[in-house]
Each structure stands twice: as structure tokens, then as C-alpha cells.
């Protein structure tokens, strides 16, 4: 079965490339705190993989990754990121001061995991938002 361009090559290459792009994007997100890259760059790559599916496969990509999914992923990730910031205020720190997130744990360990989870939430936020921007652009800004 081929997508909207009736080309077997495009279809096969797309289906082979997308998982590789996504694995590399998750690698960049989860290693963002001690190597180049981070949440934003990995999120852009995840969004690029979904947009590649949108362009090459057409309608089928909307069944796999619905139009509403982009906004939902971005919204939930923003909510979780904000919660992570406010939890440290509850325990006596500043906004996003990771050393106060869980009382009683080692501060260095907490900063490590705090930055890690902040990167993951930022990555998902960028992913959802950029896919939503692309969807809004191709539908001409009309609610689909």
C-alpha cells in the first residue's frame, strides 16, 4: 500500500526513516543534560518525523497521529513542567529549584533528575506545538 504520491520508494524510505529519527530524537532529549542538544532540539526532530509522515503518507498519518494529539501532548507537557516548577515552591525553594522537589533526597541527585525531567517535558511540548503549527498551516487555520 502506498501513500498519497503512489511511490513505493518514498513509502518504504519514509517507513524506515521515521523510527530511526525518533530514536535519535529521544537519545538527544534524554542525554540533554550532559551532551549537546536537549529538549528543544529533540522535540524539533520528533516534530520533523511526524511532519515527514504527514507529507509522505497523507491521510494515513492522521489516523496514526490525530490532529488533536499535537495540542494535547503540548498541553499536558506544559502542565507537567509547571507542576514540576511549583512542587519546589511548596517545599520551600524557588520556582524550578530542583533541590527542593523531594524532601530528604540528595541535592545533587535531585538536580540531575530535575533537569532530566524538565528536558523531557520541554521535548514533548516542542513536539506537540510544532506538529500543531504545521497542521494549522496546511488547513489554512480552519478548525479541521
Amino acid at each position: 500500500m502506498t501513500g498519497r504520491f503512489e511511490s513505493v520508494f518514498l513509502d518504504v524510505v519514509t517507513r524506515a526513516m521515521v523510527p530511526l529519527i525518533q530514536v535519535f530524537a529521544f537519545y538527544i532529549i534524554t542525554h540533554g543534560h550532559y551532551s549537546p542538544g536537549g529538549g528543544f532540539q529533540g522535540g524539533v526532530m520528533l516534530a520533523a518525523s511526524i511532519i515527514l509522515l504527514r507529507i509522505a503518507l497523507g491521510e494515513e498519518s492522521y489516523r496514526r497521529f490525530p490532529r488533536e494529539a499535537g495540542i494535547w501532548i503540548a498541553g499536558v507537557a506544559t502542565l507537567l513542567f509547571t507542576l514540576l516548577g511549583f512542587v519546589s515552591i511548596l517545599f520551600g525553594g524557588n520556582f524550578l529549584e530542583y533541590a527542593y522537589v523531594v524532601p530528604g533526597m540528595d541535592a545533587v541527585e535531585l538536580r540531575y533528575w530535575g533537569i532530566f525531567f524538565a528536558e523531557v517535558f520541554i521535548g514533548f511540548l516542542v513536539w506537540g506545538a510544532l506538529v500543531a503549527i504545521y497542521d494549522a498551516l496546511v488547513t489554512g487555520g480552519v478548525e479541521a
Binding site: 538527544i28 549537546p36 528543544f40 532540539q41 511532519i51 507529507i55 504545521y134 498551516l137 496546511v138 489554512g140
Partner: peptide, 26 residues
């Protein structure tokens, strides 16, 4: 500056071109 290079490659070379092409269809 590998961090900036990664951002530029992902955003400038991949996504901006696609968004400009999508707007070009209109």
C-alpha cells in the same frame, strides 16, 4: 558550538523549509 549547530540543523534545515513549502502551496 555543537549545541547551536544542532538547533540550526534541526530547525533551519529541516522544519523551516517544510513550513515555508507548506505555506507556498497557498
Amino acid at each position: 558550538a555543537p549545541d547551536v549547530a544542532l538547533t540550526e540543523a534541526a530547525l533551519g534545515a529541516a522544519l523551516t523549509g517544510v513550513l515555508l513549502l507548506a505555506s507556498l502551496t497557498f
